[in-house]
Design a protein around this nucleic acid. Structure first.
Length: 429
RNA sequence: GUGGAUGUAGCUCAGUGGUAGAGCCCCGGAUUGUGGCUCCGGUGGUCGUGGGUUCGAUCCCCAUCAUCCACCCCA
């Protein structure tokens, strides 16, 4: 008869107070960066009609086939918790006419949901920052997106720890032709294929190229390469992109086997990876999806975008010890009322000082306790200064200022010009 | 979805077939209005959950749930 403990859903994590300063730091860096590049934030619902994802991501992808959180609402409509952000972004942009004959640079951030087996860097609710650009078909915008990510890595101190992989999938037609070629090649070597690969032969043959199975390596090495079979226009696009990256001094490796898991990609695809996170090494990935808008019922609109996994980047910052010291700001002032009357004074003094020192972090002791224990709390709070109000102070309209971090004698100050004194003290470290 | 490892106090972990311990944390005291160091004392666990074997299970067996790692997939 014992009550079952209610706990968080598997793969969905609480973000605890200890962690949130790092998240806020990361999110702040991203927000500022987006503003600096002139991208506007868009926020869309977490739930969409199931058909949106099925039609955009691809019916036969793993995401749609077995990873979506899909349910019926009370009307019997099939709804799905978004497994990624691009589809929602396109839907919203179309729905509100944002793509009507104009260029849009958008970004978003938020939770995504995929029903996978949880693992390091892989969760059922995870968070992404996504960036999308619409209405531009040249390689310059592809390059801009990559430069933007490179700048973020540099700001975060990650640039030396990630590598950029690049590939082109060509046009949809070229890729379809190549796919047939590849399937034919694999069928000629059917006996070498492992179980996974045989399964993927007709669902997602391009992914077989990515296999880590050493037994298949020689056969894969001789397989036809996608880059050799893409159309001339895509090839030119790709060459101009690499030229731009060269000019900007961004290093990359061309990975002819780089295939993205979502059906809507075409031409440029890229991935930033790290070796520091175990098997979940992709930290940011994206590419061009020129056909998607039309596929979802809009006018043909070129588009590029990418998403980065916040958990993975946070994890990376932690494992590389790149968490800035000041990510978690401490209190400036802790106020203690030494007796019953003093605690009321403390509460009111806290309010007064917050008016006068709006940028300072001030905490008033609550909950009573012995004076000694209050001092202990002040110390543990990490505050630089403590203000004490007791009978003596009250009688003279004063407070006692105590230095918790410096070897300085405490002093009595008139409540009158307290704020000014505190401001001076806190400004000089 | 597949394989492996692990679940004992808020945290990190010992431990034994006879119903549990340490360190840290937290609280109180050694000081009548003064923290950090030290000393003393205290709170806190149905040993993940449910079955089974046994006189008796935290320990052995099974199942289940959760976490971690890898595969798969992906951010």
């Amino acid at each position: 008869m014992s009550k079952k403990k209610i706990q968080a859903i598997r793969g969905m994590n609480d973000l605890l107070p200890e962690q949130s300063p790092l998240w806020q730091y990361f999110e702040g860096q991203v927000r500022t960066l987006m503003q600096r590049y002139g991208y506007s934030e868009i926020r869309t619902p977490i739930v969409e009609q199931t058909a949106l994802f099925a039609r955009s991501i691809g019916e036969v992808t793993d995401i749609v086939e077995k990873e979506m959180y899909t349910f019926e609402d009370r009307n019997g409509d099939s709804l799905t918790l978004r497994p990624e952000g691009t589809a929602s972004c396109v839907r919203a942009a179309m729905e509100h006419g944002l793509l009507h004959n104009q260029v849009q640079r958008l970004w978003y951030q938020g939770p995504m949901f995929r029903h996978e087996r949880p693992q390091k860097g892989r969760y059922r609710q995870f968070h992404q920052v996504g960036v999308e650009a619409y209405g531009l078909d040249g390689p310059d915008i592809d390059a801009e997106l990559i430069l933007l990510t490179a700048r973020l890595w540099k700001q975060l101190g990650l640039y030396e720890h990630v590598t950029l992989e690049l590939n082109s999938l060509g046009s949809a037609e070229a890729r379809a032709a190549y796919r047939e070629l590849l399937v034919a090649y694999f069928e000629r070597h059917h006996e070498v294929l492992d179980e996974d690969s045989r399964r993927r032969l007709h669902s997602n043959p391009l992914r077989i190229l990515d296999s880590k199975n050493p037994d298949m390596a020689p056969m894969l090495a001789d397989a036809p390469q996608l880059l050799d079979h893409i159309d001339a226009e895509s090839r030119e696009h790709f060459e101009r992109l690499t030229g731009l990256l060269d000019a900007a001094g961004i290093g990359y490796t061309i990975n002819p086997r780089l295939v993205r898991g979502l059906d809507y990609y075409s031409r440029t695809v890229f991935e930033w990876t790290t070796t520091a996170l175990g098997s979940q090494g992709t930290v940011c990935a994206g590419g061009r999806y020129d056909a998607l808008v039309e596929q979802l019922g809009g006018k043909p609109t070129p588009a590029v975008g990418f998403a980065m996994g916040i958990e993975r980047l946070i994890l990376l910052l932690e494992t590389l010890s790149l968490v800035p010291q000041d990510a978690d700001p401490v209190l400036d002032i802790y106020i203690i009322g030494m007796d019953e009357a003093g605690s009321q004074d403390a509460l009111l003094l806290g309010e007064t000082l917050r008016e006068q020192l709006p940028t300072r972090r001030i905490q008033v002791h609550c909950g009573g306790g012995s004076f000694k224990s209050q001092i202990k709390k002040a110390d543990k709070s990490g505050a630089r200064l403590a203000l004490l109000i007791g009978e003596e102070e009250r009688a003279q309209q004063q407070v006692t200022l105590k230095f918790l971090r410096d070897a300085r004698d405490q002093q009595r100050l008139a409540q009158q010009d307290l704020a000014e004194t505190l401001a001076d003290l806190l400004d000089t470290p």
